[in-house]
């Protein structure tokens, strides 16, 4: 299983417009192309997860995630906000890169935790933050995932 398999160009936005944590979460959810009600429920769930503790893991990266009944398979998205947004990250630094992961409560193939772990591992690689900063297209993002072999 490789991360590249889970991302599509439609689920990548390298120029998020949101100026706040809430706006960024909404933009990320919109990348999944769900109906309005499902988007609203996901937003509430992600907010509740963030209220337990920020998913900003440092180095300008956050991984908002949850399980929810509104999806029937694992869904992921990636967003970048070059100027960064205050996200209450572990290192108190603004977050520029956001990986969204949503999984159904039950998965036959149990991909949620491995994907979450791989994204965390990818994010901690020394050159990843600077490489993400220099991306020009969704395709380059997919290429980076492939190159890293995660």
């Amino acid at each position: 299983m490789e991360l590249r398999e889970f991302f599509t160009e439609d689920g990548i936005n390298l120029d998020l417009k949101g100026e706040t944590k809430d706006e960024i979460l909404k933009e990320l959810i919109a990348l999944l192309g769900l109906d309005d009600k499902s988007e609203g429920i996901l937003y509430k769930m992600l907010k509740r997860r963030e209220n337990l503790g920020s998913t900003g893991i440092g180095k300008g990266i956050a991984i908002p995630h949850c399980r929810s009944l509104v999806v029937n398979r694992l869904r992921v998205a990636f967003g970048r906000k070059p100027a960064g947004v205050e996200f209450k990250a572990i290192d108190d630094q603004p977050v520029h890169n956001f990986f969204l992961i949503i999984a159904p409560p039950l998965e036959v193939s149990n991909q949620y935790l491995p994907v979450l772990g791989k994204i965390a591992q990818f994010s901690k690689e020394a050159d990843v933050a600077s490489r993400l900063e220099k991306l020009h297209s969704p395709n380059e993002f997919l290429g980076l995932l492939q190159e890293k072999g995660v």
Partner: peptide, 26 residues
Amino acid sequence: QDLKTQRRELQETASERAMQEEVFNL
């Protein structure tokens, strides 16, 4: 139900708990 799922994973799934504590400092 979604909240209960989250709770159950934290309570019963050791790998989920470890991930949340180690990666997200939860």
